[in-house]
């Protein structure tokens, strides 16, 4: 269960953002719709602990994120939250598989190779495991990004504009992907986007 309560965040020299209270039960998904500059990314970064709110509360599965120390918050994010970005980031020197492993190692989780292999299998990128991510196609990179986000079996998967650069067909493919039972325990997708096409797939929608 993820809940926020009167979150307020202000950039230096900027206007404060006041965010509506959110609630996302385990296994449920959530769509945050908003135009550019409406604070979608800011909200996602608040939820993941990358940013700290000036006031308000953020609780994830009983942990008050905004009260954690910096390093604890980093580890909490690494373990409990996967993140997918519009652009696909990766560590250049590492292969696809090593990148997935890095996600486990850097968060301090025990490495679970069979889980990674299953993920790659389900996402259809097993044959790419030894390749460097920059050699992958856009679609492959997106599946790789999802695999990495799920490497630590997180409860929440935060995605920032995952579909805005995709055409309709690929957008549908993405929806199919996130509906796949990729992990044993259900994952809550929290997607921040301005892409109206996604609206029809979600029942739980917050508009900023």
């Amino acid at each position: 269960m993820l809940t926020t309560h009167s979150l307020i965040f202000q950039y230096p020299y900027g206007n404060p953002f006041a965010f509506p209270d959110l609630q996302c039960k385990a296994g449920e998904s959530l769509l945050i719709l908003g135009e550019s500059g409406s604070g979608k990314t800011t909200l996602l970064h608040l939820l993941s602990g990358i940013l700290t709110p000036q006031s308000g509360d953020l609780e994830v599965d009983g942990t008050k994120i905004n009260q954690l120390k910096n390093t604890e918050r980093d580890v909490f994010r690494g373990k409990q939250m996967g993140m997918v970005f519009q652009k696909h980031f990766f560590m250049e020197g590492l292969s696809v598989f090593e990148n997935l492993k890095a996600a486990q190692k850097l968060s301090g989780s025990l490495s679970d190779i069979s889980h990674l292999e299953q993920l790659m299998e389900k996402l259809g990128i097993s044959h790419l495991s030894k390749k460097k991510p920059y050699k992958l196609s856009q679609g492959e990179q997106q599946r790789f990004s999802i695999a990495r986000a799920l490497a630590n079996k997180p409860s929440y998967l935060l995605a920032d504009e995952p579909t805005s650069s995709l055409d309709d067909r690929n957008c549908e493919k993405f929806i199919e992907l996130i509906r796949l039972p990729l992990t044993e325990k259900p994952v809550s997708w929290i997607i921040a986007t301005h892409d109206q096409r996604l609206k029809k797939y979600f029942s739980n929608i917050y508009e900023l």
Binding site: D74, G78, F89, A102
Partner: peptide, 18 residues
């Protein structure tokens, strides 16, 4: 050139010290 890699490491749970 690879500052995003550092940010990614942080997202994946690596602390500043790491």
């Amino acid at each position: 050139r690879g500052i995003a890699e550092i940010a990614l490491m942080r997202v994946m749970g690596a602390g500043r010290q790491k």
